[in-house]
Design a protein around this nucleic acid. Structure first.
Lengths: 254, 254
DNA sequence: ACCTGGCCTGCACGCTAACGGCAGGTTCCG
DNA sequence: CGGAACCTGCCGTTAGCGTGCAGGCCAGGT
């Protein structure tokens, strides 16, 4: 009956969102700079899955070379690199392209020291370990603000049925009622709302919403789904549906 | 609100404020003159993020050359330059463009009185180390007074709900009651009021409201938020909200 | 130039929301 | 009817947040 190839994670994604596009119609280009191959690959795959064109570089010099030739619309940059300091890379990068937004990856403790100057130019950062949802969301936000993807008037508000989620204010409403979510609940709902009417397996959700080094049980997904239901579906037409053995779906209430 | 074409290439912010614009519709142009590359970059990024077109020069002669060709609407000028004295630059600049407003950057102990003397011409100055909020606010004020950005009658009063803040008189009111704020509290509130209904992380606030060389704990943000709450929210419908793990939001009280 | 008061910042403690493990209960399906 | 998959109440732990206190610095006044 219903399509059950929910785990075809590698397959190119069908039409879900309005694709971000550059003015010339080409897909958005993102450069990933990280010396850990595992992490770089993970990120590259996730971003490619968003429909973006991705290239990656293992160190600062390579990043600058690639950037010159690739002309990315955004850069994901690990601050800890074997050759150059991440901030040095930023400086030189700004010489080439003054307005390319940069998303920094940084270890938790390192942030405190030199957080200064990261967010002033519209740049942003996430601390390791991060969730892919977070990285993608922040990248989208960065590009939205810097004018990439102007063709898609892709505002910061996701809407599914009478449910809406504002990524700027973190405001969530179901038919007028304001709903308060915790950080994790918010990320989970955002992921669901980005993929409405589509089965998402617990594994997919775990990979996407929780940090890549999360060691816990897949049980947390069930737990947080139940939290969301209490806040969103209780006393209303349910929007979150369980598909036994497959996963969960979010769709407008009839 | 006037319709704004999306063609604003570069770093146009999402629709939050009315963008300052020149009579011809192009973005406002600002020239930054500083010999410290780090500082020049920091300023350039921040100003670009305001939606302005920025160019920078490392010394006095370059500044004059760039000014002639770039025709800026405002100039940010370090008084300490390798070649020419900042005042000399000003004099020659006035030869080219008599009415361009200038914002001086000066060390604390330095020639404060001499600079003060120059502000009679409508110019202004900021002492290092400064906060970006301060620089941007003063630049806006300068341009407002000199008639740049005539299209946007962007008054000096910020209003969010029943809360108002006058940038000229520093008067803050919540529903009629006059509220007295310290300098830091004022800058923090101004930043919040410039970004209503938008989550601001502690890092963003730090980068923006505190001086660029501030090395202290991110704890101060929490502290000053708590001060503001005491003065603004106590005994009323709260306008400042905490989003755990995300930041703070200011919004009209329902 | 000294004094004084107000403002900024560091430190540290207490608090509470949020997270996630566990386990017993429930629903669904074969 | 049995088992698998899922739901959810309970609760210990943690980390993010609020705030009182005290020292130091700057400004404004005498």
């Amino acid at each position: 009956m219903v399509t059950m190839d929910a785990r075809s994670a590698g397959a190119a994604r069908s039409t879900k969102h309005v694709e971000l596009r550059r003015p010339d119609g080409d897909p958005v280009r993102v450069l990933v700079v990280d010396d850990e191959p595992t992490l770089a690959d993970l990120l590259s795959m996730a971003l490619r899955y968003e429909g973006w064109e991705v290239r990656s570089a293992p160190d600062g010099m390579a990043a600058l070379r690639t950037a010159k030739q690739f002309q990315p619309d955004a850069v994901v940059l690990d601050v800890m690199l074997p050759d150059l300091d991440g901030f040095e890379v930023l400086r030189r990068l700004r010489g080439q392209a003054p307005s390319v937004p940069v998303l920094f990856l940084t270890a938790k403790d390192a942030v405190e020291d030199r957080v200064a100057g990261l967010t002033v130019g519209g740049d942003d950062y996430v601390t390791k370990p991060f969730s892919l949802e977070e990285v993608v969301a922040r990248l989208r936000a960065l590009m939205r603000r810097s004018g990439v993807g102007v063709t898609a008037r892709d505002e910061a508000v996701l809407v599914v049925g009478d449910l809406s989620l504002d990524e700027d204010s973190h405001e969530v409403r179901r038919g007028g009622d304001l709903i308060t979510l915790t950080a994790t609940e918010f990320e989970l709902l955002r992921y669901l709302m980005r993929n409405p009417r589509r089965v998402l397996s617990k594994a997919q959700i775990l990979d996407r919403v929780w940090s890549y080094d999360f060691g816990g049980q897949a049980n947390v997904v069930e737990l947080y789904i139940s939290y969301l239901r209490k806040k969103i579906d209780v006393g209303r037409q349910p929007m979150i549906h369980t598909l036994r053995g497959a996963g969960y779906v979010l769709k407008p209430a009839v």
